[in-house]
Design a protein around this nucleic acid. Structure first.
Lengths: 159, 159
DNA sequence: GGGTCGTAGATACTGTATATCCACGTTAGA
DNA sequence: TCTAACGTGGATATACAGTATCTACGACCC
């Protein structure tokens, strides 16, 4: 069981967008270079985040990506499921109904006990990720680094 | 992110061994046919469970696999990690230290906030699986099915 | 006591999904 | 109208789940 690396990249980019002054779109090239990520691959995940309604993309010169919602309304789970999909890592194959020892239909009125346990674990995992917002993550970034990033992207004409 | 199907197969086999009368080893061929599973593939997972000390394998005719411990001392997490490995699905690539916006070493004394959240989620997932034993799962198998399985494998000479 | 069968164990191969890259089309600003 | 940005689709390489085959060992039977 392995989580896509795109999830980590997407999370870092979303976090950076949450750090940057609001309203200033960052081009994907800037995002990719900032973290040394493959730009073409990152593009695919930024698209996924945009389709999920987490980011807003604007084309053309001085375009780029920015958060579509306030950072305290975007959870880590939102970002993860936008990129990796909402599917559970465990999908019950209904093994109990196969082979010579197959359970009869009337014995399968309740879901398979194993599947039930796995679903519960997945819910616990999701709840843990849903409890953290991008805003909370920003607060855990070292202040010196945060200040540096704000300065780097703070060419905000409104300022 | 996808969990290996071997995990589900291993869990069902371990559950069946917990249902069967203690001390009667079941050959992997019987296990495979009972659930309609590919025997060669199942062999790999039964080996993993044996290496992890959850099952005990005995070669030769009238050999097979049986639980190495009482069913209430084997958790779902034990079986899962024996087959799928104990590694977390998320492995931090230290993206924060790469690219033009790399964090300085003195800013990385604490682990990456994103990694911390992911580790927490993984722990929640593991705790949820650790809380369930094979014994508890057996109790959730329909009685008619349990009785049928006991009769099928109950050619226990000591009985 | 030696042969034979049935068991687990180890090894090599294949298929599929992920990760990566490239080329083309579309949109908006200067 | 030219440039710089996003959007889409497809081609390629690699890692891992899944498969098949072969070897070694132990109990049973003659």
């Amino acid at each position: 069981m392995k989580l896509s690396e795109g999830v980590e990249q997407g999370l870092h980019c979303a976090l950076l967008l949450a750090e940057a002054p609001a309203g200033v779109p960052l081009p994907r090239r800037v995002l990719a270079e900032h973290y040394g990520l493959p730009e073409a691959y990152l593009a695919k995940h930024l698209q996924a985040l945009t389709r999920a309604g987490l980011l807003r993309a604007t084309p053309g010169p001085s375009g780029g990506f920015r958060l579509a919602r306030p950072a305290d309304e975007i959870t880590v789970l939102d970002v993860l499921e936008a990129i990796d999909g909402p599917a559970s890592p465990f999908v019950c194959q209904e093994i109990r109904q196969q082979g010579t020892g197959a359970a009869r239909p009337e014995e399968c009125t309740r879901p398979c006990a194993i599947a039930t346990v796995m679903v519960g674990a997945h819910q616990a995992w999701r709840e843990s990720l849903r409890a953290v917002t991008l805003d909370q993550l920003v607060k855990r970034v070292p202040q010196t680094l945060r200040k540096r990033n704000r300065a780097k992207f703070g060419s905000d004409p409104a300022a």
